[in-house]
């Protein structure tokens, strides 16, 4: 391998070359995503079992979610995924300014997502639809409707935390990009964050029909 002799600043000592380092990071990231899938998996299992036990209650309860807000948020996240992908592409082409624009766009869309979530949540809290002990709402027919809202708040809540985390990391990437830390040779952090961000999108793609579109 010819590039062993060149020793870029970002190469850590226990790797022989940047290629090995980048591929290690990527494998590590994918395994991290795998653990994320299984972490959410417990909640999906929770959802699946209680829905199979109480299909009617789930149907009745879901009517209290606002499809349009959910759909808007789906669109927002998909577009932010696109801007994230384009941010990586721009860095691959060495267009630093463009990368910054796309990263900023991604953060902005993520914030829009959280604002919409805020309105949804506060409406439900107002109605007394928080899970468990805090559930006071009387208008849903079926057994234990508070469990629907447990699932709803847990799954969208955990997802929301991931969005918040993403906002933090992407902002950090934005600053690093502005400082010129990345180049077409080295942009691993952007690429890894991209993978993470797409997974967050991917989970939402399932949450949306599961909660907002129960037929």
């Amino acid at each position: 391998m010819s590039q062993i002799t060149e020793h870029p600043a970002h190469l850590q000592h226990h790797f022989t070359d940047v290629h090995q380092q980048a591929e290690s990071a990527k494998l590590g990231m994918w395994i991290f995503l795998l653990t994320e899938v299984l972490l959410f998996g417990g909640l999906f299992c929770f959802y699946a079992i209680y829905r199979s036990w109480n299909p009617d209650m789930f149907h009745n309860a879901h009517a209290f979610l606002n499809v349009w807000m959910g759909a808007t948020n789906t669109v927002v996240l998909i577009v932010s995924s696109l801007t994230m992908a384009l941010a990586i592409r721009s860095m691959q082409l060495g267009k630093r300014k463009l990368t910054m624009w796309f990263l900023a766009g991604t953060v902005l869309l993520a914030c829009v997502f959280m604002v919409i979530k805020y309105f949804e949540y506060s409406h439900k809290i107002h109605l007394g639809q928080l899970p468990g002990k805090w559930y006071f709402f009387e208008g849903i027919a079926g057994t234990n409707p508070h469990i629907f809202f447990s699932a709803y708040f847990l799954m969208t809540g955990l997802h929301g935390f991931h969005v918040l985390g993403g906002i933090g990391v992407i902002t950090w990437l934005f600053i690093k990009t502005a400082r010129g830390s990345f180049s077409p040779e080295y942009y691993t952090p952007i690429e890894m964050t991209g993978l993470y961000w797409h997974l967050v999108d991917l989970i939402w793609i399932f949450l949306f029909p599961l909660f907002y579109l129960i037929g």
Partner: peptide, 8 residues
Amino acid sequence: ERVVGIGI
């Protein structure tokens, strides 16, 4: 479950 009683 202990704190909130989510019903799972």
